[in-house]
Design a protein around this nucleic acid. Structure first.
Length: 432
RNA sequence: GUGGCUGUAGCUCAAUGGUAGAGCACUGGACUGUGACUCCAGGUGUUGCCGGUUCGAGUCCGGUCAGCCACCCCA
């Protein structure tokens, strides 16, 4: 045997069978992903969100301008390469791409207020750990063209509903980041305060004080947290408009019955966020990477990327993290045959193929045995596949055009007509 | 990018420096006309890879790769 080729570090295969073992955790299978995706596909359109798909490959410039040059994502985590003289990057997130598409196709001319949702792989070159991989899947939404605050609450409520439908253990955290008017003033005040306490900060935070002081707020270092406890708070610096917006979002959430906690330390990693910021954080089942979904308002982003002055708000959810929790609950979307047909000879095999074809045409999942084996082994196979019914097709059945449809669970055998098999199966399916 | 732990069969795991094992799963048979139970048989493998120490390395040492966990960052 020649050398095995292995998958790229930090990427995983998601198969319909068990693959990765995570100590006491159950294994993540494709059925767990499908449950999450299917729920989103059904729920989001109820709120007016329609699916949008953008390319995985974008010009590097898009992310540099959209996400921010000093962020870790752009600074050191992107898969960037030269495409014959042009620098391109595999998307590390999807918001910048959707904004690009919105601008490129002049969507604001047709329907300035539009709601999109997306699903797909993102790429960041990080060291992997529980709930964090180099290729990961995000499901997210963006609502363009409405400044809020009611749409903010609507979106947060949709996220909450989605996560609750999936049985996720989580709590919703809410904060405001201010806007172009008040954030700079806060930033300055915070910076001043942090400089005065530089001796008590970790090395990293001393750097952040100069590059991105707001990030110091969510540093996990206990000493930094002590300093942060006495730091000026965004709330005290909010301009009247931001204050009113924040209050209105909270009121709207209360009206909709959404539970949330105000979290002044909640800051979003990407530069483009303004005002409303929110995160759904898992309360159990995950390790250090417990943010299931993070979102916020980005009123300046569309303009920043060369488009009209259009506001927006969106969230992105990490499917791998959700899949871990889904797997822990044992909830899964499984596909199994309804009817398993086991022909005993050559002529029967030909008939079996046609019977399966007819069943499938009628919308019934059918599996036909391709191997020669005695009835006992065929039944064993039907059992392993989880088939609901098994049909052994032999000489007698061929002659009579009737067969015995065996219900695997109970062992009961139902005499059915072969030419009318699909109808017979549907009748039995309904009855039991 | 930094640190810690771990690498033996498809999976879960054993083997004092001295001949690679068990359970589960898988395939076939007992059973050309009915599965789950039972019995029998059978692949289960360059012990992650490379090197070193040794008469001898799955075991000790070094390196490397991968996985896991945490930092960082984020979904």
């Amino acid at each position: 045997m020649s050398q095995k080729i292995r998958g790229v570090k930090g990427t995983r295969d998601v198969l319909p069978i068990d693959t990765y073992v995570k100590d006491e955790d159950p294994w993540v299978r494709v059925g767990h992903y499908q449950l999450i995706e299917q729920t989103a596909r059904e729920l989001f359109p109820l709120y007016g969100y329609r699916e949008a798909r953008t390319p995985i490959l974008e010009r590097t410039e898009l992310f540099v301008r959209g996400i921010g040059e000093v962020t870790d994502i752009v600074g050191k985590e992107m898969y960037t390469f030269d495409d014959r003289g042009e620098s391109v990057t595999m998307r590390p997130e999807n918001t910048a791409s959707l904004v690009r598409a919105y601008i490129e196709h002049n969507v604001n001319q047709q329907e300035p207020e539009t709601k999109w949702w997306y699903l797909g792989p993102m790429f960041r070159r990080e060291r992997q750990q529980r709930g964090r991989y180099r290729q990961f899947t995000q499901i997210g939404v963006e609502a363009f063209g409405n400044p809020g605050p009611r749409i903010d609450a609507e979106q947060i409520e949709m996220l909450e509903r989605w996560l609750r439908m999936l049985g996720m253990p989580f709590s919703m955290h809410l904060n405001t980041l201010g806007d172009a008017n008040c954030r700079p003033r806060y930033r300055e005040a915070l910076q001043e305060y942090l400089r005065a306490h530089a001796d008590d900060l970790c090395e990293e935070c001393r750097k952040r004080t100069e590059t991105n002081p707001i990030r110091v707020l969510d540093c996990k270092n206990p000493k930094c947290q002590e300093v942060v406890a006495g730091a000026p708070r965004m709330q005290e610096f909010l301009c009247d408009a931001c204050k009113a917006h924040f209050a209105a979002v909270q009121e709207a959430l209360q009206r909709l019955g959404v539970a949330f906690v105000i979290d002044p330390k909640l800051v979003r990693g990407l530069d483009y966020y303004t005002r409303t910021a929110y995160e759904a954080i898992a309360t159990s089942g995950l390790g250090a990477q417990s943010t299931l979904a993070g979102g916020g308002r980005y009123d300046g982003l569309v303009k920043e990327l060369g488009g009209p002055d259009i506001p927006g708000i969106g969230f992105a959810a990490g499917v791998e993290r959700m899949a871990l929790l889904i797997a822990q609950q044992g909830r899964e979307r499984v596909t199994r045959p309804v009817v398993f047909i086991a022909p005993l000879g050559e002529a029967e095999a030909a008939r079996a193929d046609q019977l399966a074809q007819q069943l499938r045409a009628a919308g019934i999942a059918a599996e036909v045995s391709f191997r020669k084996a005695n009835p006992a082994n065929q039944l064993k196979r039907a059992d392993a596949l989880g088939a609901r019914f098994a049909l052994v097709l032999g000489d007698a059945e061929m002659k009579a055009d009737r067969g015995k449809l065996k219900e695997m669970k109970t062992g009961a055998q139902h005499e059915v007509s072969l030419s009318a098999l699909a109808g017979e199966v549907k009748k039995l399916e309904g009855s039991g």
